[in-house]
Write a protein that binds this DNA or RNA. Structure first.
Length: 512
RNA sequence: GGCCCGUUGGUCAAUCGGUUAAGACGCCUCCCUUUCACGGAGGAAUGAGGGGUUCGAUUCCCCUACGGGCUACCA
């Protein structure tokens, strides 16, 4: 190992719920760091004070922890490269911005928002619907390039609000190697003079990401594909600041798209299509609006992470169920897909079902217990130990345990009587009357004994047991689902079994 | 509009010039089970279009089309 320890960072802005795309970026960072014995850092990009949402930082940390991919360095666990919130690093950015101005690589711009607005509307045309502040237009604007030195000094001295903009070269080609996409190149005359330092003294993302990645000695930088167009600004900044040889290797991750229409997946799509987009429940402290998360929707973190990893990446073997450890072994950034992937909630649920099937009763127990409790069902640990193995392969989501096991604890709330009715007759009714008696006399009330007695009784009544099993199930469960009937009868006990039969017989009488 | 990125079944996707073009989800049929689920066996379904390069293109190059991203003193 050389002196260059791998250092990666996940750098969300604390503006609200954590989007699954964000979690995937964090996951890839985590996997990469783990694989290379590196450090995974959390950096909070809170340079936009107007969008800051209290509580969001803690929430992000909670989400990552739930996923099992907690950063080892960050505001919660400062290392030697702090502070980890950009708002606390303010002076550094200003200093570098000034240095760039001094070197003639950036300049002060005094244009007011209104002036910018009018420039854009005036220059707007069918050929150019979104005019830029760039090498073509900057000399017509009010900045330290277009104004004479005296005026600039006066403006500065009088405390005129101003920003610092990068001076993009007129005709250069900027290219770099992306770990996922290979060579990518841009013409500098196509990119605008991005604001580096805002009027409030805070940096924009562009300046901050470069300064911080440098200061925090980031070796590999992963971010969403939406950042690709501004990459040339960042590349140039690394060069202008004199850090070119220390620039991290870039990887622009493909976007996660809406399942239907087009465009990147948003929280709105989740609301619209009925699935979560955030990792965990999020309540906006200002509006009070609540948004469901994967966790609360009933996802196991293992499944969530597994699903996310497979969205845009695969190891080439065709296997797709992986735990974090295996993911770490197999992961390679080069195998990340280039194209965006439409999110498929059905497949996401399949991953979860696979993980529920694979999870031990011990692991599932507290989660199931909590779900049941939330639905007014109290279950002992012993009971849960028996029930969980019986129903887990019927559950896609943890919440499904409620519907799949409620009948173990209380009489069914509704009876699907229409399943029984068509083939119901007096003979069957007599059978069940008799069957209640038989149950009373059964010495051992376990599945095998119940089944044997049931079949004997059916034989005596000259009815095929199969024709009676479904009605029996409906009586006990209320519907066509659940584990073997005799198991259920054994678990709920004699009294409950008899009571449910009686209740249902009465119901059937009313229908007749 | 400009720039950038992308494009294999409905969806996720393998293939790194030669394959009957994997596998998974979903869907359909059958078996197991007189419930549901699990499990098992099958099935339908894919290289956007056009040019090259090559003995040979899904694979390499170009063009077109389509999709997406960006085009803020937001990230």
């Amino acid at each position: 190992m050389s002196a260059s320890t791998v250092r990666v960072r996940f750098a969300p802005s604390p503006t609200g719920g954590l989007h699954l795309g964000g979690v995937r970026t964090a996951l890839f960072n985590y996997l990469f760091a783990q694989k290379h014995g590196g450090v995974f850092i959390l950096r909070i990009e809170d340079t936009d004070q107007s969008r800051f949402v209290p509580g969001a930082e803690k929430y992000i940390l909670d989400c990552l922890e739930w996923c099992g991919i907690s950063p080892t360095e960050g505001p919660h666990q400062p290392g030697a490269f702090g502070p980890y919130r950009q708002s606390e690093r303010k002076e550094r950015y200003a200093q570098h911005a000034e240095a760039l101005v001094a070197k003639g690589l950036a300049y002060y711009a005094f244009d007011t928002p209104e002036e910018l607005e009018s420039m854009r509307t005036n220059l707007k045309s069918d050929q150019n619907p979104s005019p830029q502040y760039d090498h073509k237009t900057r000399m017509q604007m009010r900045n330290s390039l277009s104004l004479c030195q005296k005026d600039v000094k006066q403006l500065l001295d009088s405390g005129q609000p101003h920003v610092v903009r990068i001076k993009m070269p007129a005709a250069e080609t900027v290219s770099f190697h992306d770990m996922i996409r290979g060579e990518v190149s841009f013409q500098t005359d196509q990119v605008d003079d991005k604001v580096l330092l805002k009027a409030d003294g805070m940096p924009t993302y562009h300046l901050a990401v470069v300064v911080d990645d440098h200061d925090m000695q980031i070796t590999h930088a992963f971010r969403g594909e939406e950042w690709l167009p501004s990459a040339p600004v960042h590349l140039l900044l690394w060069e202008y600041l004199g850090w070119k040889e220390k620039m991290p290797k870039w990887a622009h991750l493909p976007l996660i798209l809406k399942p239907d229409g087009q465009g990147k997946l948003s929280k709105r799509d989740g609301d619209r299509l009925g699935f979560p987009v955030f990792a965990m429940d999020w309540t906006d402290p200002r509006t009070g609006e609540e948004t469901k998360g994967f966790k609360e929707r009933g996802f196991l973190p293992e499944a969530f992470v597994n699903m996310l990893a497979m969205l845009g990446w695969n190891d080439g073997t065709g296997e797709e169920i992986f735990d974090l450890e295996t993911l770490t072994e197999r992961f390679s950034i080069e195998r990340v897909h280039k194209g965006g992937a439409k999110f498929d909630f059905e497949k996401a649920k399949w991953f979860n079902q696979e993980w529920i099937k694979r999870s031990s009763t011990e692991k599932l127990l507290p989660l199931v217990s909590q779900q049941l409790l939330a639905n007014g069902l109290e279950a002992t640990e012993n009971k849960l130990n028996e029930i969980i193995p019986l129903v887990k392969e019927r559950c896609q989501l943890v919440n499904d345990f409620v519907a799949q096991s409620a009948f173990f604890f209380r009489d069914p709330a509704s009876i699907d009587i229409n399943t029984i009715l068509p083939k119901w007759d007096a003979k069957k009714e007599q059978f069940f009357e008799h069957w209640m008696q038989i149950i009373s006399d059964l010495a051992a009330f376990d599945a095998t004994h119940i089944e044997a007695a049931f079949k004997d009784t059916a034989a005596a009544a000259e009815i095929k047991p199969g024709e009676l099993q479904l009605p029996f199930r409906i009586m006990l469960v209320g519907g066509k689902f659940g584990p073997p009937v005799f198991e259920i009868a054994a678990h709920i006990g004699k009294e409950s079994t008899q009571r449910r039969i009686r209740l249902c017989l009465e119901l059937l009488k009313q229908q007749a």
